[in-house]
Design a protein around this nucleic acid. Structure first.
Length: 255
DNA sequence: TAGGCCATCTGGTCCT
DNA sequence: AGGACCAGATGGCCTA
């Protein structure tokens, strides 16, 4: 290899490295956008990449369930769906973001109590455990921006206790490969540049509360244990990028 | 100190 | 030839 060729090789390698960096930055940006539309989002305690992807999968799954069954997601069950397969710290984070005390998310008794279950801060006892997360202080809910979508809020406010008891003993990866709902053609997200992606709706707990929908408030055990939220006026699903789905969800959650 | 996560570099492969 | 994509290696940072 002549010196000139070596030089060219080095230059090419440097360029390739720069491109690779740029590519990975793009990937990370996309991942950040994904984090922002997750049910919980915190600038200070970012979900790891793998946990972000897992939570996204669960979130899509959970919303698909909602669409398929037409039932409001019951608060605790919804959180459990979201937490399937997530590490314990992340599960605690999600529960915290949804303002469910860890104890309230604790599943009803299962025969074999794992050590995790015995933990005072345990959120679930799914068999699957993430290979690992660092141990950042995930748990302080007041530090999180809560990025809940209207259906979730409705569910928190008007828990209807749907008919889907979570199967917490099933590892998340053994389920069907596709969500229960197949939406042809209209499940699209705005992509880069969409101002919607930069919206982060922040909800603070509010005691005692105004009801989400004007009017009566059902009293449920869940409600008794959880705070309520103030929801911005224009929080109809149409304000979100999922236009096709928005109408369906609005129908479901305003009936 | 070990383990987890991350950014970066690097070489390989495929495609245009 | 050059770009995009991928996976392995490596080192840094952070936390328990």
């Amino acid at each position: 290899m002549t010196k000139a060729r070596l030089e060219r090789f080095r230059a090419r390698r440097v360029k390739a490295n720069a491109r690779e960096r740029t590519r990975m930055h793009g990937l990370n940006d996309a991942l950040d956008n994904l984090r922002r539309v997750m049910p919980c989002y915190s600038k200070t305690q970012k979900l790891s990449k793998i946990e972000t992807l897992r939570l996204a999968r669960n979130y899509i799954w959970a919303l698909s369930e909602v669409l398929e069954t037409g039932q409001t997601p019951e608060g605790k069950g919804f959180v459990e769906m979201l937490c399937k397969g997530l590490s314990q710290p992340t599960s605690n984070l999600v529960a915290g973001c949804l303002q469910l005390g860890p104890q309230s998310v604790l599943l009803e008794k299962h025969e074999e109590k794992s050590p995790i279950c015995d933990s005072a801060i345990s959120v679930h006892n799914f068999n699957y455990q993430s290979p690992g997360l660092p141990s950042p202080p995930y748990g302080h809910m007041e530090t999180h921006l809560i990025n809940l979508k209207p259906p979730v809020f409705k569910s928190l406010g008007e828990s209807s206790f749907g008919s889907h008891p979570p199967d917490c003993s099933t590892p998340p990866y053994e389920g069907p490969l596709t969500p229960p709902l197949s939406i042809s053609g209209n499940f699209s997200l705005k992509q880069d540049g969409s101002p919607d992606l930069d919206k982060s709706y922040s909800f603070m707990p509010h005691y005692p509360s105004a009801s989400l929908s004007s009017g009566h408030v059902h009293s449920t055990p869940f409600q008794a244990a959880t705070p309520r939220y103030d929801v911005p006026i224009d929080m109809s699903y149409d304000s979100y990028p999922h236009h096709g789905i928005g109408a369906q969800l609005n129908t479901i959650f305003t009936d």
